[in-house]
């Protein structure tokens, strides 16, 4: 066998191996969560807040954390979208390719992406102290929004950078302003990518523990107030895993299962939405 054929086979083998490792890893994680969590799963887990002695193995559920996490991640995603969509449109529609400001902004976003989430938590906490806020849903939303903002921006930016200049020219040559081109053409063309970016950001936000420890706090009651502490699923998992009681630890796995199901549901929903809008995208 000649050396080029060997080369081809070796690399093909390597690629298959990598793909298998990743898929197996995902399946393994799912299996662990399901095997350990399913026995502790019951209706009370998702319909009740913790009752007295919940962390000692008594009755209750984690409705507080489910509601809290959805509110917090949803709020943070909305806030981050509100900030990042104008930014990426500015980068891609208003600034010329290679403009110094664009290069600098993209570099900053990449740096921000790499900042650990505990730093956003600490930064958010300092901000809160400055404004005289206590640990609260609002504080958590701000910290998580800071965390997912660069992720969302870069994900949308990648898609918008792929849009051919000629498509924008087509819009300009009909006499549209930059604003019209941005919102009627670029946003529509990038819509599947924008939805994916929102999803990635939401998934990252709902699963993060470090940024919410100081900023969102924790509570055993179901709370909808912006100015009160809220419970979150990652912290609920953390506190339950931290107890010495096997039945409470099993509930931690059940909580992980719930968190995973939420993320998978949103992924699938976003895929369906993306498909629906894909039809209009010009190739």
């Amino acid at each position: 066998m000649d050396s080029r054929k060997i080369e081809e086979n070796v690399f093909k083998g390597l690629m298959i191996f990598s793909s298998l490792v990743i898929s197996a890893g995902l399946l393994w994680i799912l299996a662990v969560i399901i095997i350990k969590g399913l026995p502790a799963m019951n209706l009370a887990m998702i319909t009740q807040a913790p009752k007295g002695g919940f962390y000692l193995g008594k009755e209750g559920g984690i409705l507080n954390a489910i509601v809290g996490s959805l509110l917090l991640a949803g709020g943070a995603t909305a806030l981050a979208l509100f900030l990042s969509l104008p930014l990426v449109l500015y980068l891609n529609v208003y600034l010329k390719k290679g403009a110094r400001l664009a290069v600098f902004t993209r570099f900053s976003l990449d740096v921000l992406w790499g900042v650990p989430s505990i730093v956003y938590g600490a930064f958010g906490f300092t901000l809160m102290l400055f404004f005289g806020l206590r640990a609260s849903l609002l504080g958590g939303i701000i910290a998580v929004a800071l965390l997912i903002f660069p992720i969302m921006c870069r994900a949308m930016d990648e898609v918008m950078q792929m849009i051919p200049q000629e498509l924008m020219n087509a819009s300009y040559s009909l006499g549209s302003t930059r604003w019209e081109t941005a919102f009627k053409v670029v946003v529509r063309q990038a819509l599947p990518g924008i939805l994916t970016a929102i999803l990635i950001a939401f998934g990252r936000g709902i699963g993060d523990a470090a940024s919410v420890i100081f900023t969102a706090g924790f509570t055993d009651s179901v709370s909808f107030s912006l100015f009160r502490p809220v419970a979150t699923l990652p912290l609920a998992i953390f506190y339950q895993l931290g107890t010495p009681f096997p039945e409470v630890q099993a509930r931690a796995h059940a909580s992980s299962l719930i968190l995973t199901i939420i993320i998978i549901t949103i992924s699938i929903g976003a895929r369906i939405l993306t498909k629906r809008f894909q039809g209009y995208v010009v190739k």
Binding site: E166, N169, A170, K184, V185, L191, V281, V282
Partner: peptide, 8 residues
């Protein structure tokens, strides 16, 4: 243009 670009 050279290649038609319909709007999305």
């Amino acid at each position: 243009s050279q290649k038609p670009y319909p709007l999305p």
